[in-house]
């Protein structure tokens, strides 16, 4: 089983990673090779086998509804490449 160039481009778009033409071809080749060796998994009979999400922890920890200190705003914004008026600034987005 192989992955087409179009599919590779679609995946790159979903993953938001820009790939130039050469990178796209290399990526397509490498992904196809990796998928190829996973053929063993497709051939196994796994009907009726439950999935394991967590091997050792079977139930989710919970927390009480108790407030904890938030970060000082200065620290929250400190690492941002661009801020304005105490907001994280990004190129304009349209409403969803």
């Amino acid at each position: 089983m192989t992955i087409s160039l179009e599919e590779t481009q679609h995946i790159a778009t979903l993953a938001r990673i820009a790939l130039d033409d050469d990178e796209l071809v290399t990526m397509q080749r490498e992904l196809s090779a990796i998928i190829e060796i996973m053929a063993d998994l497709r051939e196994l009979d796994l009907d009726g086998v439950p999935a394991t999400l967590h091997a050792t922890i079977t139930s989710c920890g919970l927390r009480e509804d108790q407030p904890r200190a938030s970060l000082p705003r200065r620290e929250a914004l400190a690492g941002a490449p661009r801020t304005r008026d105490f907001g994280f600034a990004v190129p304009k987005v349209m409403d969803k």
């Binding site: 590779t8 995946i11 999935a51």
Partner: peptide
């Protein structure tokens, strides 16, 4: 490479064939 591989394996139509089978193998 790994982000691409994972994105592919979770994408529409492949989840059952890859991710789910891998989790079953884990069992």
């Amino acid at each position: 490479r790994r982000i691409m591989l994972g994105t592919y394996a979770l994408s529409s139509g492949y989840y059952d064939a890859y991710y789910l089978r891998a989790q079953k193998l884990r069992t």
